[in-house]
Design a protein around this nucleic acid. Structure first.
Length: 681
DNA sequence: GTTAGGG
DNA sequence: CCCTAAC
């Protein structure tokens, strides 16, 4: 039941006009999870524009979900009226069939509706707060807090952080920066503006009292589902370098929602912001609101059960549809493991005085659905537009250390500081396609391959530290692999960015490893193959990374990411297939050299010897590559595909293969003789 | 954790 | 590239 409703809601969210079949994206699909495109016919819009669009949407979201609350707060009458209206809406909703609603195209004043909902929430919030103050003293409050701590960082926590962060931006700066400078800067500014406005309310929302134990009727459950900024699952991960402020590292213990596709709790609303030139898709938004309402009724926005009962969550997986059996299985497996980890961590934290838990990018927003922000960008031209729905944003991982004896409040504060430190310098938005980061802003969406159906599930966005200002952070966020394994050992020679993008380049070159022609050691950098249209797949790196560390969703390394919903880690993402990364000639050369030296049965050594730096190449990959090389060398040049491998290299491949095969054969015979001898005796 | 080989 | 059996 629940699932079905959700499913339909999901589609609504994508746009009422959209005809069913919205392939569900495995969470794992990094690039996919965050954004979905609806219709696309022509894309003259370039990636740069896309960023701006996203920024605008982000702002809209903020205004819609929080800004209105501010207004309501200032006017009791308005709030009351809004309250009544919201309730009415809810009632109506009850009686309607969701699917039919999807087709309802007349109602476009979503902003109004949202406003009402927000108002209602605010009213409820204050009412409850007052109530708690009078009737439920500290005892209860503390109990609640405690509970929250167990559940880990809550959504509210993250929300708080964001609010604070946003607070650091001034509206003025936002105004001036909007759409005039660097796309990333614009996005940041807009986001900041949105958050800034809501900062006060956000703080209110995070008030301990706000987390009412008793789920208030209807709109009430929002206490947890409101902020799209938070996660609910604890997860361990890699560390994050100190913040720009030079503060000590922080460790956050937060949870991450196992962003199940069908599970969502957060709710972000969007509102029209015509003054910025953006106009949400009325039909889509309208239905989104309905979906939201429906969810609230179902209590989906609550963090209760699902968050604390892994088993329950797993069960839900059975409802995940449109997924292959295989992926489903994997996913389940992953979740199970994840649960285990979470438990272990809890145990550890209880056992030790100081816990050091790395939190994966908390899924900031509520899980999906509600965070979605379908929007439509209207430009004067008659270009075909793409409709995108950003389900979440990811933020870089944080490492926080805090004594167990610390209070929840201090934890909150610590997290806040960590986030501030990380994001204080600014954010940039990354655009991912098929898991690869698109670094060339000048390319059009069409050129970047972001078009039509394929991108529906392959386009993603991520919030990243602004490397320009905080290189260290960037490194951490974008290339945790390096931090973990390479940074200190590998020669980090910089190579000029090969891209031609005018607006970028500030960031990318930083972690490029030089292709040092050492003796057969392919010192290629992990990013070598990535550039414009397909930057390296941070996703892949992330997945590989997380695989090595935790069975959770991979962190989009390239971006820090607080995915509003991810599970983020990408979480999902573990099941995601790694992106294909064809071997370059230099890599082949290194491989051949290593195999010539070591033989064909020592892939691990080959890896260590020649690809120790290429974190994305596992020894299995090398073995497979050798296999294909041998095959390639055996067929006619006409039958070969892909980047042509120099014939001389292929010849060496055959020679080496032949040589080592013989060696192996020579060793084998030794056994038979013994056997024979045994038989004879 | 590695290897080897099929998919 | 993935997956598994086998070690």
């Amino acid at each position: 039941m629940v699932f079905q409703k959700r499913a339909s809601s999901e589609m609504e969210a994508c746009g009422g006009s959209h005809v069913a079949e919205m392939p569900r994206v495995p969470k794992s699909a990094r690039g996919k999870r965050s954004v979905r495109k609806k219709e696309s016919q022509g894309q003259a819009m370039c990636a740069f524009d896309l960023l701006a669009t996203v920024a605008g949407k982000l702002l809209d979201e903020g205004e819609g979900s929080l800004g209105n609350m501010t207004a309501a707060a200032g006017s009791p009458v308005l709030a009351a009226a809004a309250s009544a209206k919201v309730k009415q809406e809810l009632c109506d909703e009850e009686a309607k069939n969701l699917k039919n609603d999807v087709m309802d195209q007349d109602s476009c004043n979503e902003s109004v509706l949202i406003s009402h909902i927000a108002s209602q929430r605010l009213v409820d919030h204050h009412a409850r707060k007052a109530e708690d103050l009078n009737e439920v003293p500290k005892a209860k409050s503390e109990a609640v807090d405690k509970e929250l701590s167990m559940v880990s960082c809550t959504k509210a926590d993250l929300g708080c952080n964001f609010g604070a962060i946003a607070d650091r931006w001034s509206p003025e700066s936002v105004e001036s920066g909007a759409f005039t400078g660097d796309a990333a800067a614009n996005v940041m500014a807009l986001a900041a503006a949105a958050f800034h406005k809501n900062a006060p309310d956000m703080y209110n929302l995070i008030d301990p009292m706000d987390v009412d134990v008793k789920p208030p009727p209807l709109v009430s459950s929002d206490s947890t589902g409101e902020m799209p900024l938070y996660g609910d699952k604890i997860r361990r991960s890699v560390s994050f370098p100190r913040g720009p402020k030079g503060e000590a590292e922080h460790v956050v213990d937060n949870r991450e929602v196992d962003d199940d596709d069908d599970k969502s709790s957060g709710c972000t609303h969007s509102s029209t912001a015509t003054n910025r030139g953006f106009r949400p898709n009325c039909a889509a938004d309208h239905s989104r609101v309905k979906k939201f309402l429906a969810r609230m009724r179902q209590g989906d926005l609550s963090y209760s059960d699902a968050d604390r009962k892994p088993s329950f969550r797993n069960k839900k997986m059975y409802y995940t549809r449109q997924r292959t059996q295989r992926s489903t299985f994997k996913r389940r497996k992953m979740l199970d493991r994840h649960s285990t980890i979470v438990s272990e961590e809890f145990a550890k934290s209880n056992a030790r005085r100081t816990t050091k838990v790395t939190a994966r990018p908390a899924s900031l927003g509520a899980n999906k659905g509600n965070n979605s922000m379908p929007f439509h960008r209207s430009s004067g031209s008659n270009d075909c537009h793409m409709k995108l729905k950003i389900k979440s944003f990811k933020v870089p991982e944080l490492l926080i250390e805090i004594p167990e004896t610390a209070s929840v409040g201090s934890l909150r504060k610590t997290v806040l500081e960590a986030v501030n430190a990380m994001l204080g310098g600014g954010l940039r938005v990354g655009v991912l396609h098929h898991g690869k980061k698109i670094r060339d802003d000048s390319r059009t969406l069409l050129q970047a391959g972001i078009a039509h159906d394929d991108m529906l599930d392959n386009l993603g966005f991520s919030l990243e530290p602004n490397c320009t200002q905080h290189p260290s952070q960037h490194a951490a966020a974008e290339d945790m692999e390096f931090l973990e394994t390479v940074d200190t050992t590998e020669p980090l020679a910089r190579i000029p960015p090969s891209e031609s993008s005018s607006k970028r380049g500030e960031v990318d070159a930083s972690h490029e490893l030089a292709l040092t022609p050492l003796t057969g050691n392919y010192q290629g950098n992990d990013h070598d193959s990535v550039h414009s249209p397909g930057g390296i797949s941070s996703a892949e790196k992330a997945s590989a990374n997380s695989r090595a560390i935790v069975p959770v969703a991979p962190v989009d390394s390239s971006a820090g990411a607080i995915v509003l919903a991810n599970k983020a880690k990408r979480s999902s993402e573990q099941g995601q297939r790694r992106i294909r990364r064809p071997f370059s000639v230099s890599e082949v050369e290194a491989l051949v050299l290593a195999v010539e030296k070591l033989g064909t049965g020592r892939w691990r050594d080959v890896k260590l010897r020649a690809f120790d730096n290429a974190k994305h190449r596992t020894y299995v990959d090398l073995k497979d590559k050798w296999k294909t090389l041998v095959h390639t060398a055996s067929i006619s040049p006409q039958q070969r595909r892909g980047e042509p491998v120099p014939q001389d290299l292929l010849d060496r491949v055959l020679a080496a293969q032949s040589y080592w095969s013989q060696q192996q054969a020579k060793l084998q015979p030794k056994t038979p003789p013994l056997a024979e001898a045994r038989l004879l005796t």
